[in-house]
Design a protein around this nucleic acid. Structure first.
Length: 204
DNA sequence: TGCCAGGCCCTCTTTAGGGCCTT
């Protein structure tokens, strides 16, 4: 598969529109099923992390106070990924925060997101749950570290994406898995995925 | 004061409701 950047945010809550901010970001570059580069940083957005979120992520207000500014980190991470297409687990969430944090530094997103959650629902329909941790367990993938920390979750999402690409090769005979194809698959209604993939394979 | 995300996806659906997923 072409190189993609799998990203994961930790945040103070669920919605930038409600004032929530990013507290940590990780991006891993995945090329031909292997992680070839990594970026990870805590970030200080100058807002308080609710105690529930401190417990969930292990990221404390004390840790954030010593972290570089959110603006500096977002400049670094956007420079790190450049124009490489993005992937996230439940990408609608990470895309909201990516766009909101970029807007604060007067930058705009340069690429589309693909979503490993939408892809898993289509390609692993029998998984008991489509939470990232549950999918990692279901597919016997390595646990990268503490769940709800950005780098561990980004690495596990990258492993999941490699597994999904392998499923596409093994079950549907698709040799060249591209970000564009992933975007296409995630937009097909679940009931029509096999039909769409068979048609795609015939066109190759 | 009271409210508080939003998109996907299923179903006892489409003039709707509720669970899943992200923090």
């Amino acid at each position: 598969m072409e190189v993609v950047a799998v990203i994961d945010f930790e945040t103070t809550g669920l919605s930038p529109a409600q004032g929530d901010r990013a507290t940590e970001i990780a991006a891993v570059l995945l090329e031909n099923g292997k992680i070839v580069d990594r970026y990870q940083s805590l970030m200080n957005a100058g807002v308080r992390i609710p105690s529930f979120i401190e417990g969930l992520t292990g990221i404390s207000n004390a840790m954030i106070r010593q972290a570089p500014s959110a603006a500096d980190v977002m400049r670094e991470v956007t420079d790190f990924v450049g124009d490489i297409p993005l992937v996230a687990h439940n990408a609608s969430f990470d895309c909201k925060f990516w766009d909101a944090e970029l807007q604060r530094i007067n930058r705009t997103r340069r690429q589309e997101f693909a979503c490993s959650l939408l892809l898993s629902r289509r390609l692993l329909p029998h998984a008991p749950s489509h939470k990232l941790g549950a999918l990692v367990e279901f597919a016997n993938l390595p646990v990268a570290g503490r769940a709800h920390r950005a780098l561990a979750d980004a690495e596990m999402a990258a492993s999941l994406l490699s597994h999904l690409a392998e499923e596409l090769r093994r079950k549907f005979g698709i040799g060249q898995v591209t970000h564009e194809l992933l975007r296409k698959i995630q937009g097909v209604p679940k009931a029509k995925v096999e039909q769409a993939l068979a048609k795609h394979q015939q066109s190759q």
